[in-house]
Nucleic acid binder design. Structure first.
Length: 486
RNA sequence: GAGCCGUUAGCUCAGUCGGUAGAGCAUCGGACUUUUAAUCCGAGGGUCGCAGGUUCGAUCCCUGCACGGCUCACCA
């Protein structure tokens, strides 16, 4: 006998017996279902007394004498099935009582309401469609163990209804985003995940290898450079629901793979993109919560446009007294930030200090939707300069409920300036910045053929869902978050 | 990468100031024809994360390791 837990052994024995009797549940290939579980309750008045066929997983069983009640859960919800000893052949009733929690069955019978008022199906015929060999998580507390929840997400899903709800909302949210963009003339495209050169963000990539070409490839950190190539190719409005990969630490708000919706809009600038962002995020928020307001960490957030605009450097100067616009070198920045609550600044670069100051003094204080605008060009190598100040970029990040939800700008379309920016990145790279952009000659060549003035936008949908569902961890919004293997 | 915390039955959790462990649900046997966290009676189920150390004796104390969580660092 195998060394397995008692409950598994019992179920294995039941399965063996079924198979010996020629009733192998795994021989079934389909079940003709007439209704979903939730439909029966919704349309009870018309279905009362009607014969229906439903199927699903048994999540509760309760034997009461010569009666047996079972909750069947399917993709829509649950319906109670009732087996009666005086309504089924004796063997059929006995075999039904022998089912286990987790088994997947199809039942046929008449819709009725029990004395206690529960809408139910009285079983005439039933069939076991799949045997569960392992016991389900506990019915009342569900599956709580965080590690097990994410390692065995299927258990998390079947035991915890709110997890199903969050992930369904994810689908609804992305569908709403697609609909919003489709309706405005954007076309959905797909660009390479495997890239010979990566770009579009400041991040370290994953590296992989193509055997027959014998070349190293990178998993994309962003689709940006390819989407802009498509705009050069006269696809004037494009977007991609893009899985991105960044080789960085895991935290409650970072997963090595995550999803962005990136959109590029020819003949529009970043102010136009602010309007697009408001519309897109509102459409997705309504798909999740049915409303433009929601509560995040006890604070009511109202997404109704227009959103506040906050120039980054002006705001930082106001909050900290430090004028980042006047700082040129890392040393100057360390000196200027020494008095701020930014931790150990002795190793930090100007860009890092700016980022930390932004986190601490802007992001952590921003609940209501805000466009933080006009970032330094030095940390915005793909964004167009502001006409009033060439050291600033026409760039914004939407911040809602203290989370950075994206990044957007008027795209830099001057190929000569783009080359200079890449060269500056190369200098940073030489100086040890592993996240600096590599120079992409083909991208510059594309710009040399002419990129129209274009506004671009990226929205992180995992984070957006996290705030909309008010979950405390990004992984709640990801179907299979990364964990170290068992 | 650093600090702190966690790991006990299938699940959710107690517990032992060091003497090899309990509950509820689940499972098994029995009762019950309207339950829905059903109820009642009875039973089985654990190398207390792994490896060392201290000790007459370790699930408990110590060390290391693994996995996880939180915070920080890093980053979007």
């Amino acid at each position: 006998m195998l060394d397995v837990p008692e409950q598994v052994a019992v179920r294995m024995a039941k399965l063996a017996r079924l198979q010996e009797e020629g009733r192998d549940p795994f021989r079934h290939t389909r079940y003709d279902r007439s209704h979903l579980a939730a439909e029966i309750a919704e349309r009870f008045d018309e279905l009362d007394g009607q014969m229906v066929r439903v199927c699903g997983r048994i999540m509760r069983m309760n034997e009461v004498g010569k009666l047996c009640f079972a909750d069947l859960v399917d993709g829509s919800g649950k319906i109670q099935a009732v087996a009666r000893a005086d309504h089924l052949p004796e063997a059929s009733f006995r075999q039904f009582m022998d089912l286990d929690l987790g088994d997947i069955v199809g039942i046929q019978g008449e819709v009725f309401r029990t004395r206690r008022g529960e809408i139910s199906v009285r079983i005439d015929e039933w069939v076991l469609l799949a045997k569960a060999l392992r016991p389900m998580p506990e019915k009342w507390h569900g599956l709580q163990d965080v590690e097990k929840r994410f390692r065995q997400r299927y258990l998390d899903l079947l035991a915890n209804p709110e997890v199903r709800e969050t992930l369904r909302k994810r689908s609804a949210m992305v569908a709403a985003g697609r609909r919003f963009l489709d309706e405005r003339g954007f076309i959905e495209v797909e660009t390479p995940v495997l890239q010979p050169l990566y770009g579009g963000a400041a991040a370290r990539p994953f590296t992989t290898h193509h055997n027959t070409l014998d070349i190293d490839l990178y998993l994309r950190i962003a689709p940006e450079l390819y989407l802009k190539r498509l705009v050069v190719g006269n696809l004037e409005r494009v977007y991609e629901v893009a899985r991105c990969f960044r080789n960085e630490g895991i935290s409650p708000r970072h997963n090595p793979e995550f999803t962005q919706i990136e959109a590029y809009w020819a003949y529009a600038n970043y102010e136009d993109v602010m309007g697009l962002t408001e519309g897109l995020i509102c459409a997705m928020a309504e798909a999740v919560n049915g409303s433009l307001t929601f509560v995040r960490n006890g604070v009511e957030i109202d997404l109704t446009p227009p959103w506040r605009r906050l120039p980054l450097l002006e705001a930082l100067k106001e909050e900290t007294g430090v004028d980042f616009a006047s700082l040129q070198t890392d040393e100057e920045a360390r000196e200027a930030c020494g008095g701020l609550a930014l931790g150990d600044v002795s190793e930090a670069t100007l860009a890092q200090l700016l980022d930390r100051a932004f986190d601490h003094y802007i992001q952590e204080r921003t609940d209501q939707p805000t466009f933080v605008t006009d970032y330094p060009v030095a940390i915005s190598p793909l964004a167009k300069r502001c006409n009033h100040d060439p050291t600033l970029a026409q760039r914004f990040e939407p911040v809602i409920a203290r989370e950075e939800l994206g990044n957007a700008f008027s795209e830099l379309n001057d190929p000569l300036d783009q080359r200079r920016r890449f060269e500056e990145q190369a200098v940073a790279r030489q100086a040890g910045d592993e996240e600096a952009h590599p120079l992409d000659e083909d991208f510059i060549r594309a710009l040399e053929y002419g990129l129209p003035p274009t506004g671009g936008l990226g929205v992180g949908i995992d984070r957006l869902l996290m705030i909309l569902r008010d979950t405390d961890n990004l992984r709640e919004t990801i179907y299979f978050p990364l964990l170290r293997p068992e």
